[in-house]
Nucleic acid binder design. Structure first.
Lengths: 205, 205, 205, 205
DNA sequence: AATGAATGAGCATTCATTCAT
DNA sequence: TATGAATGAATGCTCATTCAT
């Protein structure tokens, strides 16, 4: 899958081991849960020796953190760049919501880790909450405030709370998708959420 | 050893141990997280011997399940009984939402367990999803459908999805409250959610 | 020790497990060395489960400490009590020296632990040196000083150094005995040491 | 990377690495203890790569052996050469004793390794005892026997035991010095030992 | 019912050693 | 010779669960 159709590379892509471990860990965590996953499983899934994992990560926990950090970082960055060219705040929120569910919908294992495994320990949740997550919420909030200033959204609403409501609704869609036995497309759910949400927060015409 | 040779204790001392263990476990899980909590800690907190825990619960996991089952059971029951006397579907949803946040806001340890600890392992989440949670979601949904039939809510909305959206928004309020360092009242958040939600789902006048 | 003189106790002498583990550990340490000994080996040798070891000792290291503490404690106590009834300081030292080598000569495994295993890590040696060992050296020294006051031993000698010299000579006898492939009696070596030592430190007649 | 493009280095850079590794290992072993020292630490302290260590030594254990072998070899050689020109057996022993403590007193790290680290595993002690150590003891013994033949030392003493006694006393001085928190000169202790020892073993006048 | 001593499976992590470059 | 990334065997300790009393 990796070096398809390239010159016969003699040695395998260097330093992609970190990447391989991260990918393997996502899969393993998704299948067994963080606490039930053994480092040896991750190593085996990544095709490296147990000890090699520790050349790239300080501990099992750091692997989980790294999965989160990388993904949220990417998500926020992509989110920002995509809404730049949009002017209507409603469309901006729509874009953010879609990206949110598209991303998770595209990688079920990652989605499981995000919706389930990362919600465990309070300690982690606190850091999680403090770090990238706060930035994500703030992206939603500032977009909403922009809309308030433009008169598109109801002035009396608390932007912070509104941001949480939108996030919570999307998050619930994702969690339900992850836990559901039925296999349906996650991304389209964004529109149903947006329909109600925008209807609920828009200024009366 | 405890109530030996005392006046005939008024309430049955028997099987209140189950209750004590459940309460202790809630506290311990909330403070340390499920996986980091030791059965011995729970036993100590409940004032019983380690082995005694296993007279009432088959395993550590069953304790977690029981915490969930009892609480959701109570909640659904209380929810049903309270909305019985209300006729306006909007008020019914308002009542449900308030109860939801009031319950969690009244017992922070329980809230932590619900919002954080119960979200761990996929396996548990799946059962969780299957059992009482489904019933709770269905309570919201059927109330919403009642409103649709009454013409109060928009016909074209998918009641199942709407129920998830409301639950997700409330759930996010609770999670944020649990993780927040600030100490504020949780229940009032219900109104802010309801404001947007009802505005979003109500039929245009 | 516990249920002596009771009905034939059905279960084996309670709480002698600590003793059994200590004895087993002495044997295992003597055969394999401290660092090469596995806790599992000790447990097996003591006839208990691995985990049981940790009901009686906090760590593998604590087992080593306990072996030392118990033995030195016993030795110092026995030494003091035996020299009480002796008046001649030379005889007192002779008694101490004999006890020293008799004790070690009576339990080769214990001797190995004392002469070899306990000499490893500086850290341990420092504590070792600080604790019971100091007391033992001081027993020798004060006996020697007593002899100096009585005019039996040369006044100009530094009692502290003299004590170390005697201890060192005895210690070397023990170490050699432990490492030797030949099987000879250790205790009699005390006399040869004493011969030279007393000759060397006694006041000229 | 180091000596690239410099003047042709005067002393052979080759195989001084062995020396550097040995020196580094002595320091590392002295500070952390043999078992707690990592080969990587030694390599780093010696300024070479981990793998390089294995170009000069077969294993970590061989490094320890080499430290011992080299030092004892040197010591015996120096001892022999220095006593050659001395005729009085008492003075010969005095010289040996001084050399013993001077050597250790001059290099605390080496002393720690000798007095503490080398005393660990029985297995090592046995080889240790068998090899150079025996030669050292024999140097003392033959010198003593020479004195016996010359009528200087008491005939009835067992030279082998006497050698151990002297060694043991000196060894104890060294161990005490290594473990002591006070910083004093080690070499002068030789005289105190010799005073008693020679007094104890000399023929009555 | 209650106890708590005993069990033993389970696992993250370390580190001496190897070997492709 | 030299490197240092990769290996994988090895183990102290924890803790859910059992069971004799």
């Amino acid at each position: 899958m990796s070096s398809a159709r390239t010159l016969p590379s003699i040695r395998p892509p260097v330093a992609d081991k970190r990447e391989a471990i991260l990918r393997a860990a996502t899969r393993v965590f998704a299948r067994n849960g963080y606490f039930n996953s053994k480092v040896a499983d991750i190593a085996a899934a990544a095709g490296v020796a147990d000890g090699t994992v520790y050349l790239y990560f300080k501990s099992k926990e750091e692997i989980l953190h790294s999965i989160f950090d990388r993904s949220v970082g990417d998500a926020v960055q992509e989110g920002r760049s995509q809404i730049e060219t949009i002017s209507d705040p409603r469309e901006k929120l729509r874009r953010i919501a879609h990206l949110h569910l598209e991303r998770l919908g595209a990688d079920r294992d990652l989605a499981v880790v995000f919706q389930v495994e990362l919600r465990s320990s309070t300690k982690f949740m606190e850091e999680f909450s403090a770090a990238g997550f706060a930035e994500y919420l703030s992206l939603i909030r500032s977009t909403f405030e922009e809309g308030q200033r433009a008169g598109v959204f109801r002035q009396e609403l608390n932007a912070k709370v509104v941001a949480k409501i939108l996030f919570g609704a999307l998050d619930e869609m994702a969690t339900n998708w992850v836990l559901s036995k039925r296999r349906y497309k996650l991304a389209p759910m964004a529109d149903q959420v947006l329909d109600i949400f925008l209807n609920g927060v828009s200024s009366p015409k």
